[in-house]
């Protein structure tokens, strides 16, 4: 008889449509994948509740610091980069 704590069993297929998730799980032994997936889901849930997912997806993790001089130098380089017949 299933106890009250037995929880749900969910079979999840992670195909090539989720390459980032596949990569995160690929090197783990198969038994460790479920636990890792639970951890990642909890982090995602926490981010949603705290509004962090929006910030994280919109923030450019590569962007340099918003320094006016740096931005001006970069803009100059972007303007100079004219491609013929684009």
């Amino acid at each position: 008889m299933a106890s009250a704590e037995s929880g749900w069993r969910v079979v999840v297929r992670i195909g090539s449509g989720q390459p980032e998730l596949r990569a995160a799980l690929a090197d783990l032994p198969s038994r460790a994948r479920a636990e890792r997936l639970r951890q990642l889901a909890l982090v995602g849930l926490y981010s949603l509740r705290c509004g962090a997912s929006v910030t994280a997806s919109e923030r450019d993790l590569q962007s340099p610091p918003a320094d006016a001089a740096f931005t001006a130098r970069r803009e100059r380089l972007m303007r100079a980069l004219t491609v013929e017949g684009e």
Partner: peptide, 19 residues
């Protein structure tokens, strides 16, 4: 539509990276 030589993409991406 704008069409540029392929490596221009990586060059511009470099400008927007943490230099």
């Amino acid at each position: 539509v704008r069409i540029v030589p392929q490596p221009v993409g990586a060059f511009v991406d470099l400008l927007w990276s943490d230099l």
